[in-house]
Nucleic acid binder design. Sequence first.
RNA 1: GCUGGUGUAGCUCAACGGUAGAGCAGCUGAUUUGUAAUCAGCAGGUUGGGGGUUCGAGUCCCUCCACCAGCUCCA
Length: 663
Amino acid sequence: MNITLPDGSSRQYPDGATGMEIAESISPGLARNALAVDVDGEVRDLHRPIEDDAAVGILTWESKGGQMAFWHSSAHLMAEALEELYPGVKFGIGPPIEGGFYYDVDLGDRKVTAEDLEAIEKKMIELARTDSSFERSEVSKQEALDYFTGKGDGYKLELINDLEDGTITFYRQGSFVDLCKGPHIPSTKPIKAVKLLNIAGAYWRGDESRPQLTRLYGVSFPKQKLLEEHLERLELAKERDHRKLGRELGLFMFSQKVGPGLPMWLPKGAILREALVDFLKEEQLRRGYQPVITPHIGRLELYRTSGHYPYYADSQFPPMFETSEDGSAAGSDSENDLDGYLLKPMNCPHHTQIYDHVPRSYRDLPVRLAEFGQVYRYEQSGELGGLTRVRGFTVDDAHLFCTPEQVKDELKDVIHLTLHVFSALDFHDFKAQVSLRDPADPDKYIGDPSQWDSAEKAIREAAAEMNLDTVEEPGEAAFYGPKLDFMVKDALGREWQLGTVQLDYNLPERFDLSYTDANDEKQRPVMIHRAPFGSLERFIGVLIEHSGGNFPTWLAPVQVKMLPVSDVFIPNADEIAQQLLDAGLRVEVDSRSEKVGRKIRDAEVEKVPYMLIIGQKEMDGDNVSVRRHGEGDKGSMSLSAFIEHVQVEVADALDSTRTAAAS
RNA sequence: GCUGGUGUAGCUCAACGGUAGAGCAGCUGAUUUGUAAUCAGCAGGUUGGGGGUUCGAGUCCCUCCACCAGCUCCA
């Protein structure tokens, strides 16, 4: 058979040659490091025969496929260790994940604690050293059921029952046999370093109503040094955690008295946030958006019409009810004259009323109503965290009301705006996800299937025409329409949804919105919900981690810090600071009786972009000595030259991205 | 909400069941400083809240709260 290698060359091998044999024929070093083999895009065991002509790549630790096989095998190794240490343990699933692996296990009444993890690690290394090979075998469904019936593992039986006969494979290493489709590394030997990271509960098959298993997370490496480097990276990531930086830089806070998930912006954070808001407001005005402002609450009736109440009552703060004259609270039923109010969980119902307050002509469309609207959602307690998941947050919301024909152009403009925002903030590593209906569960969604078809088509086409690489996720759509979401990872590698664009054919229907077309007939507008930041809170949280708190000058809460060399020069520093303020820069003067070395250190720790050192030399020469954060001494220049330098830097940061996003 | 973990001064962390402590930050004073930490003194606490065991609880037990990791959820 003819085997094509990644460098484009091809070689002849006897039919049924294995990946290992191919690796050996290339070089002994490659054979030694080989973990798995890529056969026409499918990762396979090295010892499986390759039957036919194929494009083959040998996978080592350096490849993602190799790492995944390595961690998958490590999960099996951990399972073997668990079975030895905790006889009778039952197993759920144990896959490799980004950055390691886990196994879900049912330990019965036993509990695993942090101390036990070390013992499991030791056992894993001990087992790894036995150099047990991972042996693949094909079994019939009946054999598979018999094996796990004998073992009494109901979870595996459930998995097997969902599989087709003839497609079932087992893997064995040492004494441990698992239902598994592979692939695996040849033997346990390369697993040299193991660290079990944490324990968590995980519902069987992700279903809250089913038993909760114990999930053990771990990571493993072929060298001890790689593990140490990995742990160091995890430590470094913690330094970028926005909760830590937010406290250190004085950006935001939480208070137990105010309530969980309710962030409060401190002066420096508020300045940063307002800079972002101003930036987007200006962009939106340029694109024909109209600002609106709406109240934080609305009548329950509004949300009954929109369909949000009582359907989403669980994730809303409970409604407020007016009280009748005798002091008793009115009922929540619409039969009662007195109705309650709801803290708004989203802005769209209010915006529909603004759209609807005057008759709209097709000539007015698209109508683009924008508001930085604060919303409140009663997220489950276990879900709250930092700024990324909160109960009160601000959506950089806008609702675009347009004709069906305008949908695609509006989507394209929103994609353009979102890419511009991401580019201005240096987010280049993001995922664009098209969230579609779940074909298996059509009842979850409201609206006409044909509208859904055209909505999904419009999003796909708009993204394609904007050259946006997207990943499609069936089942991730909102109940009222498909979405295009922009996902970015935080310091710990968790993915967060930031920007979002959502098509909605449903709310215009529910609120009976209309416009008059050219033939003087009433038509239904289409509504697009969109938010380039998503929420200011989450966006800034991710921005803090992305930048490590080293904000670009245009966003830095303090842009310039004056550092007088001694108290004598404080009046001069104050005077220069005033001139910088007049030029529109954000300035602070460090007037403490400290040495410059100390003032510099503190300003560096505060991550202030520019420091100006003011002493006798500067007074004599009528200039300022400039120090740039993270870069050091930049020499001296005139004050006007410095001001211009900073202003140009700020303007460039915004302008260059404008052209970059447009190209 | 669920599983596991954590909670001591503003921050980072100590304290065999036996008098709650340090560094930094803060305040006061001295110092008047040239590119990443000047010196000294002072002050700072119902050890997350409540209950219990004990002669005695930061430490052990129960309970509530908050935070952290994960699960579920996420308009």
